Deep mutational scan, measured.
Amino acid sequence: MATGGRRGAAAAPLLVAVAALLLGAAGHLYPGEVCPGMDIRNNLTRLHELENCSVIEGHLQILLMFKTRPEDFRDLSFPKLIMITDYLLLFRVYGLESLKDLFPNLTVIRGSRLFFNYALVIFEMVHLKELGLYNLMNITRGSVRIEKNNELCYLATIDWSRILDSVEDNYIVLNKDDNEECGDICPGTAKGKTNCPATVINGQFVERCWTHSHCQKVCPTICKSHGCTAEGLCCHSECLGNCSQPDDPTKCVACRNFYLDGRCVETCPPPYYHFQDWRCVNFSFCQDLHHKCKNSRRQGCHQYVIHNNKCIPECPSGYTMNSSNLLCTPCLGPCPKVCHLLEGEKTIDSVTSAQELRGCTVINGSLIINIRGGNNLAAELEANLGLIEEISGYLKIRRSYALVSLSFFRKLRLIRGETLEIGNYSFYALDNQNLRQLWDWSKHNLTITQGKLFFHYNPKLCLSEIHKMEEVSGTKGRQERNDIALKTNGDQASCENELLKFSYIRTSFDKI
């Protein structure tokens, strides 16, 4: 039985969820670079991206490699990797027998973001014989899940209580170790020597080791999670996991709180800001991140802002960003909400898709409305799209047979046209069989910064309504002859009103 693990408890099935942008060198404390989270699957090609990484700022997932063999891993080693800020997950990587050479110096898994409450997941690794993470000293947050690894031993010899604050939620089941077939031998045991430290858990006094050649490092209890030197002297209180010299914040392997210019500090002093819960960055760093993602459509890219001495992905609820200094300031009234469309555009074809934009005031991208039916549609669209004030790209209304009016965009005031449909149009209306009105132009103002209007096959939309939009939106004169079809717009509506004058002759039985 794995020490510190839980057996036999019912657990939810383990679901495996399925960018080499360097964020800056980590400095003297770390020998390499800070790398983003990685999802490495199918083959070993991307694994080489770990070569210079000291910190993975995010998670590391290595999974679904069915053609790899043990010899493929023999020359692979990433000794610079010290810390993973989120979680480490391995799933069905064939041929991998140990992690001792792959990650010989991995010391800390912070667990800032977890995989279903777990910071370390080893699942269905069919050839893994031992973990071998002999320098792993601290899992700051989260638990361990090690399950269905039929060859995995050296679990009962690990004292997880020396690595985690609590072992109650560890789930370590259905491994070879369960069948008591392992016969784990710690260093020196074969020669009758006791080389590794022994600890007591559940009444068992057991030597602690990761492999037959690597003991588990056990520091004096007084050192807590700070770690200790090879001689057993406690590291500085700002260290986490390990250090090369005692009581020196510049000799830590990793930091308990924050890293700044080669030393570990309790908090980031001005003019620095907390970033990702582990390091200090200056304003320029946060500003660069903001600008890199301002026009990016890459998933996970955030326009970072500053709030409460932190550089964070977005302002919290009730705050909006001051564009001059990136500071989050309290909103006066309802907060603006910028919604970034991942692929640059979004099609609204149902109430469900409209709900995804609920509360958005600025759309960074283009909207395509293609709704053919739905219950209580006008009210639903207004509830979900009615706060949109600005669209950076274009607005396209296409084959939306259920629409009679666009009044559900009740606050839309600006279409920038930074991206144009077919390279020309910022407003595009095609084949809307029941569209009769755009907006009530006596109450609604709309500016279209650039781009043209396109109207074709809107049989109940009168040309007068379209011409009014040209005047109000500032697009009059931009359109070419064929942009607004004269014969297919309003051709099934009563669009022309003329005053009919009647004269009559009164007659009676005795007068003409």
Rank of each mutant, 00 (worst) to 15 (best):
H307Y: 11
N257G: 06
L63G: 05
C215H: 01
P79N: 06
S161A: 04
R141H: 05
R263C: 06
L152K: 00
P246V: 07
S213M: 14
E238Q: 12
G227I: 02
A254K: 00
C252D: 01
G227C: 06
I201A: 07
C328A: 00
T320A: 11
D288A: 14
V144F: 01
K193H: 04
G241A: 09
E180I: 10
C196K: 02
S225P: 12
N105E: 10
F258R: 07
G203D: 15
C53G: 01
N195L: 13
N52T: 04
R256Y: 12
G58M: 00
S112T: 08
W210K: 01
L289C: 08
L174I: 12
L50N: 02
S284T: 09
G300S: 13
L63C: 04
R162Y: 09
Y273M: 13
I163L: 09
F66K: 02
R74Q: 05
E151L: 06
R162C: 07
P336W: 09
D248L: 08
H302P: 12
S323T: 14
P336G: 09
V265K: 08
M137N: 06
E33T: 06
T199F: 13
L233G: 11
M83F: 12
F116R: 01
K80C: 05
I146K: 00
Q245R: 08
C293K: 04
C234T: 01
R256Q: 09
G132Y: 01
A156P: 02
K193L: 03
P330F: 05
Q61F: 11
C186I: 01
D178H: 07
I158M: 04
V173I: 00
L260P: 01
N175W: 03
A156E: 08
F78A: 12
P271E: 03
S213A: 05
S296K: 08
V206H: 01
F283I: 15
R46Q: 10
Q299K: 14
C243I: 00
V108S: 05
R297G: 12
H48T: 06
N195W: 13
D75S: 10
C286V: 09
N138M: 13
C293P: 01
E180R: 11
S112G: 09
D86G: 09
S143I: 08
I56S: 02
G241D: 01
Y30I: 05
D261A: 10
F258W: 07
Q299Y: 04
L99S: 01
V218M: 05
D159P: 02
P104G: 02
F283Q: 04
F73L: 14
L155P: 01
D75T: 10
G111Q: 00
V265E: 06
L63A: 10
P187E: 09
Q287T: 10
E130W: 05
L76K: 14
T199G: 05
I185P: 14
G318W: 14
A230H: 12
F73V: 06
L260C: 02
N150M: 05
P249R: 07
E314H: 02
Y272K: 05
T320D: 09
R297E: 14
N52V: 02
V281K: 01
K193G: 07
L136S: 00
K191P: 07
D247K: 05
L327T: 09
L131G: 02
K217P: 03
R69Q: 06
A156S: 07
L326Y: 02
P31F: 08
L174M: 08
G32V: 13
P336Q: 15
N170K: 06
D288W: 13
R298P: 07
N179G: 13
T199P: 03
C182L: 01
K67C: 06
R256M: 14
C315S: 01
K251P: 01
G203C: 04
Y134T: 15
E124P: 00
L50T: 05
E57L: 06
H302A: 13
L327R: 11
D247T: 07
F91C: 03
S323V: 03
